[in-house]
């Protein structure tokens, strides 16, 4: 009797223990599900938010950055800030907005030096190698240079002037007798510092720094640029075109690259270019071949 009761109590205790544990585990799992889904959403960095120089690729960065803000503290220009809860950037991680305060590209890169975990990669020694984003002249309808004016501000403020941004002169078709100086961004040199976007004189910047993934296309893997291959090979890689052959009346030649019909000297144009007998025309040039 006593043993049976004892067993009953143990059973009840065991059941309570298991139920309690399942309850806790269930609650925590549910919480985890919510948190996980939230984490997934907050992993998407908005396009306006740029990471500090040397930041690892976004996925790795979120696993490496411990949200301490030491990079923010050592930024001499107050460029960086830590994302606050409610902002679209993962809470506590550092970012900057080019239009507000761009990166001034310090030569000693203090933010990278300050990072204790390596979320900002210490291998970045030269600030010119930073790739925080890529400038894109997004609005070609409103850019003053595209309209034919000499604004040039983005070009002038670019720390890598004439490398990251060049001005390419072209004919102004609208006016017919002016040039347009088109700002062209070169991804090979653009660090994404955002100086151009910040200083664009329009109320809404025509040139914007975007994450490289958004800013840049990619060529097909199998694409080859003929002219570059030709340069590398030191000569054309394809056989020259065969000279064209035209079936023309005697004494007449044809230049397809512009001159058109050429009548040989001394030969008056035949009053009838083709013989009255169509067979003769067809057979011309093949006589005696049978």
């Amino acid at each position: 009797m006593f043993n049976a009761m004892n067993a009953q109590t143990t059973n009840a205790a065991r059941r309570r223990f298991l139920v309690d544990m399942a309850r806790t585990a269930g609650g925590v799992a549910l919480f985890g599900l919510g948190l996980g889904l939230y984490a997934q959403r907050s992993a998407a960095l908005p396009a306006e938010a740029l990471r500090p120089p040397g930041a690892l690729a976004e996925n790795d960065f979120l696993g490496a950055c411990i949200r301490c803000g030491l990079c923010v503290r050592d930024c001499p220009y107050g460029t960086l800030k830590l994302a606050e809860l409610g902002e679209a950037v993962a809470t506590g991680t550092p970012f900057f907005t080019a239009r507000t305060v761009p990166c001034e590209m310090c030569e000693d890169i203090p933010c990278v030096v300050a990072c204790p975990t390596g979320a900002l990669d210490k291998n970045l020694q030269n600030i010119d190698d930073a790739r925080m984003g890529l400038a894109v002249l997004a609005d070609q309808e409103n850019c003053l240079n595209f309209l034919g004016l000499r604004c040039d501000v983005c070009y002038r403020v670019c720390p890598s002037i004439d490398k990251a941004i060049t001005l390419e002169a072209e004919h102004n078709v609208r006016s017919g007798h002016h040039s347009r100086f088109i700002p062209v961004v070169h991804s090979e040199h653009c660090t994404g510092c955002g100086k151009c976007e910040q200083s664009c004189v329009l109320p809404e910047a025509a040139i914007k720094v975007l994450p490289v993934r958004l800013a840049k296309g990619a060529p097909g893997e199998h694409y080859r640029l003929g002219w570059e291959e030709k340069r590398k090979a030191g000569g054309s890689l394809v056989e020259p075109d065969r000279p064209r052959e035209f079936n023309l009346p005697e004494g007449v030649q044809y230049d397809y690259q512009g001159k058109g019909v050429i009548l040989e000297q001394g030969n008056p144009p035949p009053s009838v270019p083709y013989d009255a007998d169509p067979l003769k025309t067809l057979k011309r040039g093949v006589e005696g071949q049978r």
Partner: peptide, 11 residues
């Protein structure tokens, strides 16, 4: 471990 991100620090 699953997300590769320090998720707890979000909240």
């Amino acid at each position: 471990a699953v997300t590769g991100s320090i998720v707890w620090e979000l909240i």
